[in-house]
Each structure stands twice: as C-alpha cells, then as structure tokens.
Deep mutational scan, measured.
Amino acid sequence: RDEDEKEKIKEALKRGNEDKAKEIAKRANVSPEEYERLRKEAE
C-alpha cells in the first residue's frame, strides 16, 4: 500500500505534476526526506 503511494508520487513527478505529487505525499504521510528521494528517482 505504501509502495503504491510512492509509485503514484513518482508517476506524478515524471509528468511534472508536482502539486499532485505533494498532495499524495501529504496524504500518505511521506516524509520530506523520502519525498526528495522520490523526486530524484523520478528525474
């Protein structure tokens, strides 16, 4: 379940949809550090 959320965040970031990614991260309680890591992976 947690991994699904992280995949959704990465997908949103790949599409350049940072607002959606942040919204998912907030809902999934993803830490800022984890969010940054996902953002780097998505580049």
Rank of each mutant, 00 (worst) to 15 (best):
A25P: 02
D19I: 12
E36K: 04
E34T: 05
A21M: 01
I24F: 05
E33M: 08
Y35I: 04
N29D: 09
R39W: 07
E3W: 13
K22L: 13
D2F: 14
R1Y: 14
I24S: 02
E34Y: 03
E3M: 09
E36W: 03
I9Y: 01
R1K: 13
E23L: 07
A28Y: 15
I24M: 07
K14A: 08
K22P: 00
G16M: 03
L38T: 02
K6G: 09
A42Y: 06
E18P: 09
A12C: 04
R15W: 12
A25S: 04
E43R: 09
N17M: 11
K10G: 02
I9F: 02
E33V: 07
D2H: 13
E34W: 02
E23D: 09
E43Q: 13
A28L: 15
K22E: 07
L13D: 00
I9T: 01
K8E: 10
G16Q: 04
L38F: 04
R15K: 12
L13E: 00
K8V: 05
K10I: 10
A42H: 04
R15C: 09
E7T: 13
D19Y: 09
E33C: 06
R39A: 09
E3Q: 13
E18M: 09
N29S: 07
R15G: 10
K22F: 07
R39T: 06
N29T: 03
D19Q: 14
K10L: 10
A12P: 00
I24G: 02
K22I: 10
V30P: 00
A28Q: 08
A25C: 04
P32Q: 11
D2V: 14
K40W: 14
S31G: 12
R15D: 13
K40M: 13
E43T: 10
D2E: 14
K8R: 12
E7V: 12
K20D: 11
G16T: 02
E36I: 05
V30R: 01
D4K: 11
E3F: 11
E41L: 07
Y35A: 01
E3N: 11
A25I: 02
E3P: 11
A25Y: 02
E18G: 06
K40P: 02
E34L: 05
I9H: 01
R39I: 07
K20I: 14
L13I: 11
K6H: 14
Y35F: 15
E34M: 05
E41S: 04
K40E: 13
K6A: 09
K14R: 15
V30E: 01
P32Y: 11
R39N: 03
K8C: 06
N17P: 02
S31T: 13
K6F: 14
V30I: 15
D19F: 10
K14G: 04
L38N: 00
K40I: 14
E11H: 08
L38C: 02
R15Q: 15
K22W: 12
A28I: 12
A25M: 04
E33S: 08
E18L: 10
K26Q: 12
E43P: 03
A21F: 01
A42F: 07
E5A: 15
K8L: 14
A21E: 01
L38R: 00
A12V: 03
E43K: 09
K26G: 07
E3V: 08
K20V: 15
K14W: 07
G16I: 01
I24E: 03
Y35R: 01
A42E: 03
A25V: 03
D4Y: 12
E7Q: 14
K10S: 03
E34D: 09
D2A: 10
E41M: 07
E33G: 06
I9G: 01
A25D: 01
L13K: 00
G16F: 04
K26E: 13
E18C: 08
A21D: 01
A21H: 00
D19R: 12
A21Y: 00
Y35G: 00
R37K: 11
E23C: 05
L38I: 10
V30L: 13
E3S: 10
R39M: 08
A28T: 07
A12S: 05
E3D: 14
R39K: 14
K6C: 04
L38G: 00
E11S: 09
E18N: 07
I24L: 12
A25G: 03
E36V: 04
L38V: 03
K6I: 15
D19A: 15
V30H: 01
R39Y: 06
A42N: 05
G16A: 03
R1A: 14
E5S: 13
Y35N: 00
Y35C: 00
E36M: 05
Y35V: 05
A25H: 00
K22Q: 12
S31P: 10
D19T: 13
N17F: 12
R39G: 03
R37S: 09
K20F: 12
S31N: 08
P32H: 10
K26M: 12
K22N: 05
K14D: 02
N17T: 04
I9Q: 00
L38A: 02
E41V: 05
K14N: 05
E5T: 15
K14H: 07
A28N: 13
R1N: 14
E41F: 03
E34N: 03
E41Y: 03
R27M: 13
D4H: 11
A42M: 08
P32A: 13
E33T: 08
E23N: 05
G16P: 01
A21R: 00
I9W: 01
P32M: 11
R27W: 10
D4S: 13
G16Y: 03
A28H: 13
D19L: 12
E33K: 07
D4E: 12
E34Q: 05
R15Y: 12
K8A: 15
K20N: 07
A42D: 02
L13C: 02
D4A: 11
E36C: 04
K26P: 00
A28M: 10
K8T: 06
R27F: 10
A12Q: 09
I9R: 00
K14L: 10
E33D: 10
A12M: 10
E34R: 00
E23K: 06
N29R: 06
R37N: 10
D2G: 12
L13F: 13
R27V: 09
D19H: 12
R39V: 12
K26Y: 09
E36N: 07
